[in-house]
Structures are given as structure tokens and as C-alpha cells.
Design a protein around this nucleic acid. Structure first.
Lengths: 354, 354
DNA sequence: GCTATTTACGGAAACGATTGCACAAAAAAC
DNA sequence: GTTTTTTGTGCAATCGTTTCCGTAAATAGC
């Protein structure tokens, strides 16, 4: 175990005071060029790394941000975290990651803990169940900036970075209708989340616009996954099956594909499907899946940039508080109508040998 | 901005010494039950959270671990991180995440920084280019435990958690051969990595076992992705195209699928394909992809557990240092031979309309 | 050449929690 | 009832950096 290398050690070695060494390393104007050089040289030679905890304690800032999200193995969130990490690296910040696994108690205790000063700011995407936001308020009262992304708390006064959920949803639904769908279903998560509500609203408004019927079974809300699978299975095998499905989140559309594969339901001839999704394999699926692709990396990047602005100069109330980065509707075979020529790129409908 | 809540504040309020409050909160046996209760009550009421930096400074441990990995948007690594976070949470540890983006300089400077004491231990999966491991040695000399996972440095003396790369690779190759492949190619990343070497070796040994020819073009190494795409495109369109492809990493097999889709090359009739991959959509691809599925979550979990053992009692040299968690070969349509009945689950070959 | 200012550095007090030691008061021992 | 032990608490040093002040020497001002 190598001997500890701290400022005291460097100071002793060079016959300087600790304070002088500290200043030299921070390149203070008060220190002569000559001394600085000596200090730099020795610090480098000894491989000196300042103790971040001492520094954070003294300066009351940690050069660390916290990222709180509901799940990690998810193509959207991983790209968001990638964007966040990218910005944080540029800024010399560290990134603590916390996964709530959609459990609100975890979210609450986490956020409560983060008011300790461990982080200089927080980026969060809330649990599907989160309704009360007292814990976020508390964080704010402790002077720790917070930016929501994707799953935001609206009207909470915190800055948000989202995609254009409503519009994207509306246009995607119109696309489904234009492809001939008349019996549309909407698969989504609990409607506490603003994104699920907005996506649903876009969907419903499109239906209304085209005077398509809506009844209480049009919207299927996934609470328990296993249960939802069975429910979906029944729906797709019923005597009045849907001819179009809109999945508000990625993992729900995969269930649809699994069931269709198992039940030999043909996409898109029997059923057209699209989803909010960042699956990189969307074009390679059977059949290629039409997606509303969210700008995940950019959302992460923008959210982090916003957070750093808040961290660096606490007072910019006048800034635009709600950023919206548009998604792209990428049309692939899963929503092509029969009459329509199949795309060159993804050429065939999925034909079953049954 | 709420007034700061620290031990001093609680002490003052209760007419106690700071040290007493500190001990009470840590439930020390030296403090009377009565005092403890009073302290607990007030701490809860004031929403007290101890300053982690003060605590870390004093106790010389941070309750934080660092995770260093080459990329995040990757189904393998996200599940690993999930496993790590899961264990860390149980242990009350925090997780700092660092992405090297396959850049060795980043890895080096990162690891160098981490010897500052910011973390109590490090979990790492190295860059494709990493050969010199001086930075990891340096970390070790500073008394910070390190565990490698997946992309490990062999013979470095550090504990490792991997999958059975060689055997899995060997058996998968045998499977390809048994399905009738005779012109096999191996797609991989630079061979500095132990995993790429082992996977290649398993592949080559299987070929040798079955007396299939190997020449210098049998192994394609991806350095630059765009370049590699073109190279692969040429290979697949050549007059002597392969009839079997083994991709050592997930992202390379996706290139194969893209090219086959574009060039109307039929899988599996013209070309059989398999890969090390944790794609959740593997069964839904066109056609469903045969994968060697790594136990990603378990690898993360085991690596974290190992690290915590090292952190908690520094001296357990006698422990098993190299854990191997086996992968599973999941056979799907992308490697079925023509004569063979197609599976019920994923029933059809991908038929092009060209 | 004497004061006024700058330059370059040292001393010491923070930051907030932990912990070794000291020490009253209470309990136990004899 | 005195001595010893136990119990409960306070004091102060400590972790390693940062930063407010203070100050000697060097330079400038006139």
C-alpha cells in the first residue's frame, strides 16, 4: 500500500505551506510561476489526486449529479443516460445512477437521500405510480436543482425536457387510420404519467377527428405484465379483434409481436402495429416495426445542459423551462396497407407456414 | 432555502453535544435509550440527512463504487449495470457510472482519477484497445479493490467474472457445422480483448475438429464500423460467399442482418447466422436469431458481490478469483437447416418478394 | 530615503461528521 | 461509607482542502 499523497506531503517535500500548494495547484495568481512549476512537477511525479470528499466538504459542491430513472435495460433510457454522461464528462462532473424499478418508495427514499448534498443536481424520470411530488419539492427547498426528462411532473414548476408526445401520437394515429385501420386499440401504462396521458390524448383526438368509435375497452392499461399478456392475448384472439394497435411504450409492443407470432396473426394484413420505441432492431423485426422514435440522446443531452445551467448560475428564472424535442415517425412494414407497394428496404410481409 | 440541518443544529436544539447526537444516530450502545429516542424523533422531524462528504472524509470510505464500461446503449451492459445497481442498493452503496466509449485515454484518466478515494471499489470492463494495465495496477496500489467483468484482463491478478466464452463459442460453431455450414466466417472486435480471443479460439478449434479450412480471411476484425460494413457487404456479395457467420458481438450481427435485408440474401437458406447477443428482440427478428445469450444480470450481480467481499474484508486471497457463469445457446430460425422442420414458435423463413 | 503598494506566501479557521479520551454521576462491590 | 465499576455524555482532535487574513519582503511612488 503506497503512502498517502496529500497536500501536506507535497508541502513538506517542497518546504511550502499547505495553502500555498493548494493555491499553486489551482493555478492561483497569487503564486509565483516558479513555485507553481515546482508544485506541478512534484504533484505529477507523485501522481497526486486531490481527495474529492475533502474538497466537496469545504466547497459545498460535489461536482456530481444524480440520475434517477425507472429502469435501465430500455433502449430509450440507455441513450438518455449516454447523453447525460456525455455532457457531464465535458463539464468534469460525475454521474450517480439510481434505478427505481418503478417503485415509488425507492424513488422517495432516494430523492430524500439526495438532499444531503451528495449531488449538485438531479435529473429524474419518475415512476409510473408517482403522484405526490413532495419529495421533489423537498429537494428543491434544499437548493438542489432538478430537471425532469421524459416522464415529467407537469405544473410542478421544474424544468422539463420531453418529446412532442401529443403531436407525435396524433400523427401516428392518423397514419394508422389512413392505412385503413378502423378498430384501434391503445396500449399504455398507468395514466398518472403525463406522457401516457398526452399520448393517449393524441390518439383519442385523432380517432375523434376521423369519427371513429371509442369505448371503454379501447384503452388497455398495463399494470401487471403477466396479466396484461393474457388480456392482450384474449383481445387479439377474440371474435372482434382490433385491426390496429398503438403501443405507447416499447415493452408493450413486444408483447403484441410475441402474441402475433404465437397465434399466427399476420402483421400488417390482419393487424397494423406501431409504437413509441427506440429499438435499434425495429427495421429488422418480422415485420419491420413502424416506430415513433424519440430523440433519446438529445433529450439526455439537453436535460443535462439545462441542469448545469441551473447549477452554475442559480438564478435564470427567465429561461425557457420546457424543452420539447420532436420525435420522428418512421414508417415501416408493420403499418403498410395491403394495396400499397411494400418498401424496397424491408420487402416482404411476414408469411406464416401454418 | 431551508436552514441547514446538521448535527450541530440537532445538538443545540436538544441541549446535547454533537458527539452524543452522532452516536445516538448510529445507535451506539453508549447512549441511553431515552436520549436516542429524542434524537431520532428530532432528526426525523427535521428531515436530517447526514452530509456524506463529511462522513466519507472522516471515515475514509465513500460507500460508493465506480462502474467503468465501454458503452451503455448495449443490451449486455445495461443488464450488467442493472445487476450491479441491484446489489449495490442492498448494500447501501452508490454507483458512479463512467463510459469510456472505447477510448483508452478516457479509461486511463478515469481510473487514475478514481484512485483519489472517490470510490471504495471499481468494476470494470476494458476498452477494446486496452493492452497496458498500469492504470489498474496503480489503482490497486492505492488500496482500491477492482473486479473485472466480461472484458477482463487475464493474468493480471484481479478477480474476474465472465461467461464461458470458449466453450459457448465452440459449441455454437459445432451447431453451425451440424446445420451444414462449410464456409464459416468469424466477425469480431480487435483481438486484444480476452473475450474476443477466446471466442475466436472456440470457433477455430471447432473448425479444426471438423477439418474445415481456415484461411486469413476467415476472421474479420471490426475496427471502424463504416469501413467494416462495406467490407462485410463485399464479402456477402462475392462469388464465394460464406454460408455461415459467427458474430462475436451483438452489434456486428446487426450489420449482417441489415446487409442481408438490403441484398436479399436469405437467412438461413443461403446463409446461417448466430451471435453472442442479449437482444430481447432476437426471437422477433426476421428471421429469429440464434444467440449465445450471456447471463448479463448475473454477471453484474456476481461481480458486485465479489467486489463487496473485497471491500468489506480486504484479505480473502484464498477466495476463488475467477467466476465463470455459463451462457446459453438459444437456437432459432437463423441457423436452421432446410430439411429441418421449422419451429412452431417462430415458424417461417423470411421470404423475400424480390 | 521614507512611505505606500504590491507580490508571494504562511497560519489558521472553516466544512460536518466521527471517535479516542476524559470525566461526572450513578450503580455495584466490599 | 468508601472504593470500584459502569453508564452516559462532553471535549477536542481528526479527515484533506479551501480560503480568509495577516505579514514579510520586494517594488513602486514621490
Amino acid at each position: 500500500m503506497a503512502e498517502k499523497i496529500d497536500l501536506k506531503r507535497i508541502a513538506r517535500e517542497l518546504n511550502l505551506a499547505v495553502s500555498t500548494v493548494s493555491r499553486a495547484l489551482r493555478d492561483s495568481y497569487e503564486i509565483s510561476e516558479e513555485t507553481k512549476q515546482k508544485v506541478f512537477a512534484l504533484a505529477r511525479q507523485l501522481n497526486y489526486e486531490p481527495n474529492p470528499y475533502a474538497s466537496s466538504l469545504r466547497r459545498q459542491r460535489s461536482k456530481t449529479i444524480g440520475v434517477v430513472l425507472p429502469e435501465l435495460p430500455n433502449n430509450f433510457f440507455t441513450h438518455v443516460v449516454n447523453g447525460i454522461e456525455w455532457v457531464a464528462r465535458q463539464k468534469g462532473y460525475h454521474v450517480l445512477i439510481y434505478i427505481t424499478h418503478e417503485q415509488m418508495e425507492q424513488e422517495i427514499s432516494l430523492i430524500r437521500h439526495l438532499q444531503s448534498g451528495r449531488v449538485d443536481g438531479v435529473l429524474a424520470s419518475v415512476c409510473a405510480g408517482t403522484q405526490d411530488i413532495a419529495h421533489f419539492r423537498s429537494l428543491h427547498q434544499h437548493g438542489i436543482p432538478l430537471v425532469f426528462f421524459d416522464r415529467v411532473c407537469e405544473d410542478s414548476g421544474f424544468p422539463t425536457v420531453t418529446t412532442n408526445d401529443y403531436e407525435a401520437s396524433y400523427h401516428a394515429t392518423v397514419h394508422l387510420i389512413q392505412q385503413g385501420c378502423r378498430h384501434l386499440y391503445h396500449l399504455t401504462l398507468p395514466l398518472h404519467l403525463s406522457i401516457t396521458r398526452k399520448r393517449l390524448q393524441g390518439f383519442l383526438d385523432a380517432l375523434q377527428q376521423y369519427q371513429l368509435p371509442v369505448n371503454e375497452s379501447t384503452v388497455l392499461i398495463a399494470k401487471d405484465m403477466d396479466l396484461f399478456y393474457d388480456q392482450l392475448d384474449q383481445l387479439l384472439c377474440s371474435t372482434q379483434p382490433p385491426d390496429g394497435i398503438f403501443a405507447a411504450v416499447e415493452k408493450l409492443v413486444l408483447l403484441v409481436y410475441h402474441i402475433c407470432q404465437k397465434r399466427h396473426i399476420r402483421i400488417p394484413s390482419q393487424l397494423k402495429v406501431l409504437a413509441f420505441s427506440n429499438l435499434e432492431t425495429a427495421p429488422l423485426l418480422a415485420p419491420p416495426l413502424t416506430t415513433i422514435t424519440q430523440p433519446a440522446f438529445e433529450i439526455g443531452k439537453k436535460a443535462a445542459e439545462l441542469l448545469f445551467r441551473k447549477i452554475e448560475k442559480k438564478r435564470d428564472i427567465l429561461e425557457q423551462m420546457h424543452y420539447v424535442i420532436p420525435s420522428a415517425l418512421v414508417i415501416r412494414d408493420s403499418t403498410r396497407s395491403l394495396g400499397q407497394a411494400l418498401s424496397n428496404q424491408s420487402a416482404a410481409e411476414w408469411i406464416h407456414s401454418a
